[in-house]
Amino acid sequence: MNRDSRWGDWLNAVSGVMMIVALYLVFLYAPREATMGDVQRIFYFHVPSAWVGFFAFFVTFLAGIAYLRGGKRRWDVVGFSSAEIGVAFTAMAVITGSFWAKPTWNAWWPWQQEPRLMLVTILLLIYFAYFMLRAFLQDEEQKARFAAVYGIVAFASVPLTFLSIRWWQRLHPVVFDRGGTGLTRPMLLTFLFCLLTFTMLYFTLLLHRVRLARLVDEVEGLKKRLYSGERG
């Protein structure tokens, strides 16, 4: 636990500093986009949020496999912690995306017209179901096992879902076209740095969430010992 909190402090500091640098880059260093104006700056936080969302669900998938192979509680904790962070960041991507979409596309969330938005909608639904499943199971071990299986099945369906949504869209006229990513060098640099910052932030949050879950487990253990002590 000591080692964990030292890691935590270190990660806190690094991601804090990186976040400040990222803010500087986004608002002061990166040039103003010619056609979209300042609203384009959302992109530097929007895309990394979406990336962290996907990455977090991928980690849940890997943790699910690891849990089923070894049955170690640790992997279950990593799995649901990562799924929680994934939902939060995906929601963040949706919200920042809406801010960008309103002035650019003139709609907050035109999810039926844009395959990526629809995929995000489905992803959120899938991981809400993941948490519902956990909530409706009582036995901790069973909860971990079922959640691991669902995390794997869910993630396996994501590429197929994306493919089918994209093909489905293709038959409709393309309403929104983002065009090429005409990023200048400073823009690209800012973007890559933000991507790195958010990935760092993800690991920081994951570490803290896992530590929290472990403390909860410890408290539960202590409670049990206390109760059994009273009875015996």
């Binding site: 489905i122 179901a129 869910a154 879902t161 493919l163």
Partner: peptide
């Protein structure tokens, strides 16, 4: 529980 779990996965 079943529809909640099943429908998002079965979408493709």
């Amino acid at each position: 529980m079943l529809p909640v779990l099943l429908f998002p996965i079965i979408l493709p």
